[in-house]
């Protein structure tokens, strides 16, 4: 589903002393099937933005369209449920939403609410467990007996079980150890490709944005600050630093190499081991700038 924001404003507690403009005149489009990273500091409006994607919030100005659904001020969306089924949201620390007696019941909770029949849910569960790498033995256990990492996977499985076509991820790796983080991101990337999802990732990690996203939106104070491909955005050091964002470390380092050795070594998606070989070749001394 294509997603578009047209001059969207959102104000919390309007006309009170606590009034707060969380989004101002925000416009962008996300085409179906893309992997978009939304980057910005705490308070930049990221979480307000994603709540518009499944109609948890309605804009106080402007218009949001998600496929055939439109969100506008003052207008109730009729089939908000259909929209919520299509747009799965994995909130920060999603394990906090677990509540049911068994893992299976908790995973089935979403699709059941959307009226998916029992047999269909039964069919959906095994491949999802496979995707989130949980053994089937856990299905009858209480979600509260699991480890933190497993709980998070159960919660994610619960969102995937809705079979959404848009997947919104709000810092899905927060609090995990390095291996957990990598496994989690690889899992989402595989799902994205295998199911042809439109994936929207809210993240603080420039590394993840660089590695997985094909489009990046940088938010600052409720407005869009920059937008483009990660390769284009992440070379603009000064502009990023103005909103206190760092370049991904590999790009920072390439910059330093270029400065120190007066060579041209742009970032072109090389892995660390490829970079090792490149450095060896460039710095051997007999290779000049090419």
């Amino acid at each position: 589903m294509d997603i578009s924001f047209k001059q969207v404003n959102y104000t919390y507690q309007p006309n009170t002393p606590f009034e707060h403009h969380a989004l101002r005149n925000l416009s962008f489009t996300i085409s179906s099937g893309s992997f978009v990273a939304i980057v910005g500091h705490t308070g930049s409006g990221k979480s307000t933005l994603i709540q518009h994607l499944n109609g948890l919030l309605r804009p106080t100005g402007g218009e949001v369209s998600i496929g055939p659904y439109q969100l506008m001020p003052g207008k109730k969306v009729k089939d908000i449920k259909v929209l919520r089924e299509k747009v799965g949201v994995v909130f920060q620390y999603p394990e906090h939403q677990l509540f049911d007696e068994t893992v299976k019941k908790d995973i089935a909770f979403g699709p059941k609410n959307f009226g998916v029949d029992y047999e269909e849910i039964e069919k959906r569960i095994p491949p999802i467990l496979d995707a989130v790498q949980l053994p089937e033995e856990l299905l009858e256990r209480s979600p509260f007996d699991l480890s933190g990492g497993q709980m998070r996977r159960v919660a994610i499985a619960g969102v995937l079980a809705m079979d959404p076509s848009v997947l919104v991820l709000d810092e899905p790796t927060a609090g995990l150890d390095p291996r957990g983080q990598k496994e989690m991101m690889d899992m989402f990337y595989q799902l994205h490709n295998a199911k042809g999802l439109t994936t929207i990732l809210v993240t603080h990690s420039m590394e993840d944005a660089l590695q997985y996203a094909d489009h990046v939106i940088i938010m600052d104070h409720g407005t869009k600050y920059m937008e483009g491909t990660p390769e284009d955005l992440f070379v603009q050091k000064d502009k990023l630093q103005a909103v206190q964002l760092d370049l991904p470390e590999i790009i920072q380092f390439l910059r330093k190499i270029e400065d120190k050795f007066q060579v041209s070594l742009p970032y072109e998606g090389q892995t660390i081991s490829e970079l090792g070989i490149q450095l060896k070749e460039h710095l051997k001394g007999d290779v000049t700038d090419e």
């Binding site: 709540q51 499944n54 948890l56 449920k81 919520r84 089924e85 799965g88 949201v89 909130f91 999603p94 906090h96 939403q97 909770f109 979403g110 059941k112 609410n113 959307f114 619960g158 969102v159 809705m162």
Partner: peptide, 16 residues
Amino acid sequence: QETEKISKAQASRGVD
């Protein structure tokens, strides 16, 4: 804040 967060998470899973 917590209540709001969880109710939004569950609303996203189709709770009305």
